[in-house]
């Protein structure tokens, strides 16, 4: 059976500013609920979004902070399986969160040895089902997918 898109992809543009991260989260929750994404999976996307935006704001550099961030949300439904895709487009330094070379740092053996880096990437990977990345026109395009099953 062909794939069916329930609704057109919705978008929000925010400033590259931590204060706008809350607005982004509220938009995500509202938009995802409107598109029928179950609450547990909205929470997963929300965690990923918070971490991705934090990376953009903290590590994206001046180009990221001087530009806006585009967010897009779409939901695909096929019999039994649904996928919500959140796309984050930013103009920051090139960074592929999906690449294994940019993976989380190894887990430390003790609290004393514990560093504080790489935690956000670990969370993005744990909370998502799939990540894909492309660099286009000087912008990072990261797609975060979560899937769930739904009775036909």
């Amino acid at each position: 059976m062909p794939e069916r898109v329930e609704r057109p992809r919705v978008e929000l543009t925010i400033r590259a500013d931590a204060r706008d991260a809350r607005r982004a989260s509220e938009w995500l929750e509202s938009s995802a609920r409107d598109q029928g994404v179950p609450p547990a999976h909205i929470v997963r996307l929300d965690h990923c979004l918070d971490e991705v935006l934090a990376n953009v704001f903290m590590h994206g550099g001046t180009a990221a902070l001087a530009s806006s961030v585009l967010l897009q949300l779409g939901v695909r439904r096929r019999p039994g399986v649904c996928t919500a895709e959140l796309v984050v487009v930013d103009a920051g330094a090139e960074f592929d969160s999906s690449a294994s070379s940019n993976g989380p740092t190894p887990k430390p053996a003790s609290l004393a040895e514990a560093g504080l880096g790489g935690l956000g990437l670990a969370m993005i990977r744990s909370f998502s089902d799939d990540l894909s990345y492309r660099r286009s026109d000087g912008q990072n395009h990261l797609t975060i997918s979560v899937r769930w099953t739904e009775a036909a």
Partner: peptide, 19 residues
Amino acid sequence: TFLSSMGIRALVSAAKALQ
């Protein structure tokens, strides 16, 4: 209701300082 990696960092920092 929501715990970010920044929140985790705050917990780890506090635990390390106390230890």
